[in-house]
């Protein structure tokens, strides 16, 4: 009982904006260093050392950006929707800040997934764009992210805006399994998944290892930017609080 009390106390301190701001400040340099190092390793490995594909030649190297960006575009939507649900149910302010931090980041990653897929499609499929189920559902994901961002601007009251965004984000989660399964449910131009939880990847290990490095690097990059966005959002919303003013005094750099 006493132990669980201490846990809740710690969680509470953690979920308070100043508590999160202080704690996350310690993680930022580590996340930045780890993600930049892994990005550099994955890029050099994937672009320079991984063998070319027997059929696609070197254009397949776009996969080292396309797959990690797509993974995080989808995972980032879950982050946004779960934060929205937590905000709706428990009215945790930090969850709302996380949600507004996740939207532009997710939109940028979805754009990168679509853009890299488009430039990959031209040399391999013979077209930049096709209204295929996978690609169209991914475009819907971009619109959902942009919709959440626009909705936040549309309300004068922060409380109402946060709740409306959370509901939109929750409704939009329907799209995520559709994106995942679109290549299996319908005849589509997009190839099925190379990486599966239940089976070995259909990719040679020499090509797969750098891809794995890039995926881990993108997860770290996502965490890094999400925390940076959340910290800026915290400062903006709490700028009238005493602790932020003290911070501004200390931080004379």
């Amino acid at each position: 009982m006493a132990r669980s009390g201490a846990f809740w106390q710690r969680l509470h301190r953690w979920a308070s904006p100043p508590g999160f701001y202080r704690l996350s400040g310690r993680w930022v340099p580590w996340l930045a260093a780890a993600s930049l190092a892994l990005l550099a390793l994955g890029l050099v490995w994937g672009l320079l050392y991984a063998p070319p594909d027997a059929r696609q030649g070197n254009s397949y190297r776009i996969i080292y950006l396309h797959v990690p960006a797509s993974f995080l575009a989808l995972a980032g939507y879950y982050v946004m929707a779960v934060a929205g649900a937590i905000h709706l149910i428990w009215r945790v302010k930090l969850a709302d800040m996380l949600m507004s931090a996740a939207a532009p980041l997710g939109a940028a990653l979805t754009f990168l997934a679509l853009f890299s897929g488009s430039l990959w499609g031209k040399p391999t499929w013979g077209t930049y764009w096709v209204w295929d189920a996978r690609i169209t559902s991914m475009l819907v994901l971009l619109f959902l992210y942009l919709g959440v961002m626009a909705l936040r601007q549309a309300y004068a009251s922060r409380e109402t805006a946060g709740r409306a965004c959370a509901v939109l984000a929750l409704v939009g989660t329907v799209n995520i399994p559709i994106i995942y399964k679109s290549v299996d449910w319908w005849y589509s131009l997009h190839q099925p998944a190379t990486i599966r939880l239940t089976a070995a990847p259909s990719m040679h290990p020499d090509m797969f290892k750098p891809l794995l490095v890039m995926i881990v690097a993108f997860y770290l990059f996502y965490a890094w930017v999400l925390i940076l966005n959340t910290r800026a959002e915290i400062l903006s919303r709490e700028r009238r609080a005493a602790w932020v003013r003290e911070l501004a005094e200390e931080d004379v750099t």
Partner: peptide, 18 residues
């Protein structure tokens, strides 16, 4: 009026493919 190539999810180096 348009022909598109559909490729599969397999990626292999040329030597291995041969």
């Amino acid at each position: 009026d348009q022909v598109l190539a559909k490729h599969d999810e397999n990626y292999t180096p040329p030597e291995v493919a041969e």
